Computed example of a mutant assay.
Amino acid sequence: MLTAALAFAGAALIINVVPGLDTLLVLRTSIKLGRGGGVAAALGIVTGCCVWGLATAAGLTALLTASRLAYDVLRVCGAAYLVWLGATALWKARRDEPAEEVPEPAVAGSRWAAFRAGVGTNLLNPKAGIFYMSLIPQFMPHGAPAFGTTVLFTGIDVAELAVWYWAVSGAAAKLAERLRRPRVRRRLEQAAGVAFLGFAANLLADRA
């Protein structure tokens, strides 16, 4: 089991550090709200991963491949959510609001919104469920209990993601002051908006 766990950890690490939608969300939120905001978004993402992992352990994610309708409904909902995130980012860039101090209650509310965004982008992405369903069985030792092994591997993946997003949020927060300049912030929002729309288009085009 130890050998299998280490092999899975290595494979998952390679996949986790490849820049993608979740990393973009943590990076953008960390720059806007500081490390606290980025950590909130990351917590939302890993919460979604835990849900997908438990669903895989219970055999529920098999419905995504067995039922084309279930996969398509989740895929379209996820794409619509990403379109909303992208459009919101582009609209904020267009408004060109001056930088200002945000009251603490508003910061707390923004962090809660960041957490919800992390959960939403993860749970509404059927590829996240397919990831657990397709990757974990490849490393599961023969005769090992499926439920317990899946939970163990999910825990390993979530731990790696937590460390990775902690590093990403910290690096982004250190650059936040420079990146919060109005012109740079507008460019960031524009780039993030286009990226979110690109992820939405990719999800809509998916035929897995």
Rank of each mutant, 00 (worst) to 15 (best):
K174A: 11
A159N: 08
K92A: 13
A117T: 08
A89C: 08
F153A: 10
L161M: 13
R181D: 14
I130R: 00
V83L: 15
R111P: 03
A99Q: 06
G143H: 09
A162I: 15
R180G: 04
L179M: 14
F199S: 05
T150V: 11
I130W: 01
P141L: 03
P98Y: 06
Y81L: 14
R183P: 00
A172W: 02
A201E: 02
L197V: 11
L82T: 03
A89R: 02
L82R: 05
M133T: 13
A79P: 07
G198N: 05
R116Y: 03
A146F: 09
A162E: 11
A93F: 06
P126K: 02
E100S: 14
E97F: 07
A108Y: 06
Y165C: 08
F147P: 09
E104A: 12
W84D: 00
F139Q: 11
V107R: 15
A114W: 03
W112G: 11
G193R: 01
V168W: 01
L152K: 01
T149A: 12
G118C: 07
A144W: 10
A87Y: 06
E97Y: 02
E104D: 11
I130Y: 02
R178W: 08
Q138Y: 01
A144Y: 10
F199V: 04
D96W: 09
T154R: 01
L124R: 01
S110M: 08
A113L: 13
S169A: 15
T154P: 06
S169R: 02
K174T: 07
R185F: 14
A162L: 15
A117S: 10
T150N: 09
I136G: 12
F199E: 06
P145I: 09
V76C: 01
N122F: 04
W164V: 15
L124C: 08
A171D: 04
R95D: 06
G198V: 04
V151F: 07
A171I: 12
